[in-house]
């Protein structure tokens, strides 16, 4: 169990501020790092991995700084965005080289274990040059995992993978997170982040805009009414009953059903079942329309 902590971290390149005063603590489990292009995600990951010095603030892994401290690589692995694999090596040779670089006591066994973990055994003796994108990505994850690190950082691991390969990579991240490792990955594909992990760190223009479970983040945006789509046996009667509720700020009737705007999430979601039962209206559908990670993200970026 390891914790990666950032305290007041900034990084600037000349006059350009890439990362601006970020503090966070990452514990075991899977966390998604989100943000528009140019938000500073890669800069942040590189500082976490000790490739870049923070201009201000500190990045520590269990109280040891990651910058100028090669010892952290015993506990930390990074899968970078750029693909840098030697196509002439087989996956086994590639992972073995990584194991030897870490001076592991039994590099061959470690390499086999890592390849096993990413389920690449059947192809391990083929040259990486012949691999598909997803297989290459898995070989790189195996190389980053070979020394069994407590912390794994991945920059855009799903890029260019097909649905099956992404499903597989997601399962792998889940397994690693459940086993108590600290996993941080950046991604643009929000519906998939939503599936892998509800816990996110959102960066906008170099700053940390929000962190935590995105559902909790949504509840905290009290200035935005929660929007629900409701369908029932008698929409009009339900609309009349709902608008009388103080927690409801607006109701719209359209041919397919009701759109309800609720100012107070807790009060509305508790009131709806009660009201429907009292009025003898059968609710056939209640779907939150702006609770997905995608809408939470766009609210954060707009703000």
């Amino acid at each position: 169990m390891s914790t990666l902590s950032l305290t007041g971290v900034s990084r600037w390149y000349g006059n350009v501020v890439a990362v601006n005063d970020i503090s966070m603590a990452l514990g075991p489990g899977v966390t998604g790092l989100l943000g528009p292009n140019g938000a500073g995600k890669t800069t942040l990951l590189h500082m976490m991995a000790g490739f870049l010095a923070p201009s201000r603030g500190t990045v520590t892994l269990d109280d040891d700084p990651t910058w100028r401290n090669p010892d952290v690589y015993r506990r930390l692995g990074l899968v970078s965005e750029r693909e840098a694999v030697q196509g002439f090596l087989t996956a086994y040779e590639f992972v073995l080289a990584s194991a030897k670089l870490h001076r592991l006591p039994d590099p061959a066994a470690a390499a086999r274990r890592a390849i096993d973990l990413v389920e690449l055994e059947s192809a391990q003796d083929r040259r990486i040059g012949t691999y598909s994108k997803g297989m290459r990505q898995r070989a790189r994850v195996a190389a980053a995992l070979v020394h069994d690190p407590q912390v794994l950082l991945l920059d855009e691991p799903f890029n260019g993978m097909d649905p099956r390969q992404r499903l597989h990579m997601m399962q792998l991240l889940h397994t690693l997170g459940d086993a108590g490792r600290t996993i941080l990955f950046s991604s643009h594909i929000l519906e998939e982040v939503e599936q892998v992990s509800g816990t996110v760190q959102v960066m906008v223009a170099g700053r940390l805009a929000a962190s935590g479970d995105f559902r909790t983040i949504r509840r905290l945006m009290t200035n935005r009414p929660h929007v629900f789509a409701v369908r029932s046996t008698d929409d009009r009667a339900l609309a009349v009953a709902l608008i009388a509720e103080p927690s409801v700020s607006g109701v719209e009737l359209d041919p397919t059903g009701l759109t309800v705007r609720a100012g107070d999430y807790g009060a509305f979601t508790r009131a709806l079942p009660r009201i429907a039962l009292n009025k003898g209206i059968r609710v056939r559908q209640l779907v939150p329309s702006d609770e997905s990670l995608e809408s939470v993200f766009s609210y954060l970026v707009e703000a």
């Binding site: 999430y265 807790g266 979601t269 508790r270 709806l272 079942p273 009660r274 039962l277 609710v283 559908q285 209640l286 779907v287 939150p288 609770e291």
Partner: peptide, 12 residues
């Protein structure tokens, strides 16, 4: 849901 007084988030 009403009896237990729980916040209903989704029914679909």
């Amino acid at each position: 849901v009403a009896e237990l007084d729980l916040p209903l988030h989704r029914l679909d």
